[in-house]
Nucleic acid binder design. Structure first.
Length: 462
RNA sequence: GUGGCUAUAGUACAACGGCUAGUACAUCGGGUUGUGGUCCCGAUGAUCUGGGUUCGAUUCCCAGUAGCUACCCCA
């Protein structure tokens, strides 16, 4: 600390007061200025697409009642039972940091009487969510999601529209993804299916061969049996009756329609018969967005792709969603069909970084204003406002005194021109304009600054 | 929740059972008190925490914590 302390004693006092450093919490991340260009890009793309497709932005509180998530996301989901940041507040209320967005959005829909708006209500949501997980690549305890929810629309067009927007989001960010899609039916046909599934596992002693977790799943949440990664379980699951074959007529027609729309839009989807999702409220259409593995793009030879085929990168899912026709009513609203999806923004940014997609540096300016002496500084502070309001991308370092340090900063900011004002120029009514690339300087009339800059950079208004 | 790897300045890396823990980049200052990019000089700045072994540990051992990573699960 070079200039902070006038006296040694002052510094001593400061050092004694300086306490132990408290670091950030586990699994939490700071977003530093250098990284913000990625966030701006992603947020901008999400906003643009949402607006274009008629989704209007909402925010909901970070804190909600614990019960909201317990009831909606489910007692059998890991997200609620194991991973929620929940605690008792000063009022003895049991509350939680939201582990996902949909329950809060549905709550808001009901609470603000949005069923009185023209249906469907299409909502765009972006913000942080929290899960008390063990941190890992692309997984944090606080992370950001971009959600779209379409509440009040039963048509399969809504499902297809959501999937399309999701797909366009990735495609326009130059991330190669495939859509994994399945239908898990409605509570009625799923009930029939679950009976079939349970019978299947009872046959030929299959149940005994299941892994420890799957034995539990068989009782608690049999759909998840299809999703296990254990070799034996995967083998059995591949022979198990498929849920799509057991759909009732309505559900089957709905699913077929969704697929037809996707075909029409040339969406590259993959029918994924064992895809089920981790939240309890889904019905009918469920989908996830997976990054296309780099291997399959680089080496297209069959032998290289063949052994990789089964190693689907589930962990790296970039997004997911589906239909949740029962949730609004279950949460105390009128019976209302709905569907939605969520995208994990940290994972998206990870992909953008992996691909080295060049991004423009937003901090670069065009003009830098340098000053020498207090009188010049005052004048330049006023000039800065004039140029800023005229729309020029102007930079400054008013607190610096030496021209050297100001030019250093101008250089780092990559400006094309630096305007230099000192005593001499004030006396003459002029200002220097320095071309930063060539180093050539010209003296110009102070009153003609704006005209001169416009001549060199063009009129920013146009 | 289970496993693997790791832990040294802001960052990226060295080194050593013992003397002043080294280099690069970054930061700050100076060479040049009205001129940036290059160059030169200088300064600031680190062995995660707690135990153990040892005459002596930053180094070896154990535990904790954190980071990375795989699994589970999810985005």
């Amino acid at each position: 600390m070079p200039k902070m302390f006038k006296k040694k004693e002052e510094e001593k006092v400061f050092k004694v007061r300086r306490g132990k450093f408290v670091s950030r919490l586990r699994g939490m991340k700071d977003i530093l200025p250098d990284e913000y260009k990625y966030w701006n890009l992603v947020i901008k793309k999400a906003s643009e697409l949402s607006k274009a497709y008629g989704f209007r932005r909402v925010d909901t509180p970070v804190l909600e009642s614990w019960e909201l998530f317990e009831r909606s996301s489910g007692r059998s989901s890991d997200v609620v039972t194991k991973e929620m940041f929940s605690f008792i507040d000063k009022n003895n209320d049991k509350i939680a940091l939201r582990p996902e967005a949909t329950p809060g959005i549905v709550r808001a829909y009901i609470e603000h009487g949005m069923f009185n708006l023209p249906q469907p209500v299409k909502l765009f949501w972006l913000g942080p969510v929290f899960r008390h997980d063990k941190p890992q690549a692309g997984r944090f305890r606080q992370f950001s999601q971009f959600n779209l929810e379409n509440i009040g629309e039963p048509s399969p067009v809504a499902d297809a529209e959501l999937i399309a927007v999701t797909y366009y989001f990735f495609r326009e960010l130059q991330i190669d993804v495939t859509i994994q899609i399945n239908s898990i039916g409605c509570p009625l046909c799923r009930k029939d299916y679950l009976v079939k599934l349970e019978n299947f596992y009872k046959e030929r002693g299959r149940r005994v061969k299941l892994c420890h977790d799957c034995k539990k799943r068989l009782i608690k949440n049999p759909l998840r049996l299809l999703d296990c990664k254990e070799k034996l379980c995967v083998e059995m699951a591949s022979e198990a009756p498929q849920i799509v074959d057991g759909l009732c007529d309505d559900c089957r027609n709905h699913f077929i329609k969704v697929l037809e729309y996707l075909d029409e839009l040339d969406m590259p989807y993959n029918l994924h018969s064992t895809l089920v999702r981790g939240l309890d409220y889904y019905n009918r259409t469920v989908f996830e967005i997976w990054p296309t593995p780099a291997e399959s793009q680089a080496t297209k030879s069959a032998d290289a792709a063949a052994p990789k085929k089964d190693e689907l990168p589930r962990q790296a899912a970039l997004g997911g969603g589906g239909r949740y026709d029962g949730l609004v009513e279950y949460m105390g609203g009128r019976p209302t069909p709905a569907c939605g999806f969520a995208i994990g923004l940290e994972r998206v940014i990870l992909k953008i970084k992996e691909k080295n997609i060049p991004l423009q540096d937003e901090e670069k300016g065009d003009i830098f204003l340098a000053q020498l002496g207090d009188q010049a500084r005052r004048k330049i502070m006023k000039l800065f406002e004039v140029l800023r309001k005229a729309g020029f991308n102007t930079r400054q370092a008013f607190t610096k005194d030496s021209l050297k340090s100001q030019l250093e900063i101008a250089n780092k900011m990559g400006v094309k021109y630096t305007l230099i004002l000192g005593q001499k120029e004030i006396m003459d009514g002029t200002i220097l304009i320095r071309d930063m690339e060539s180093g050539i300087q010209e003296i110009i009339d102070y009153k003609k600054i704006v005209a001169e800059i416009e001549k060199r950079l063009g009129n920013p208004a146009k």
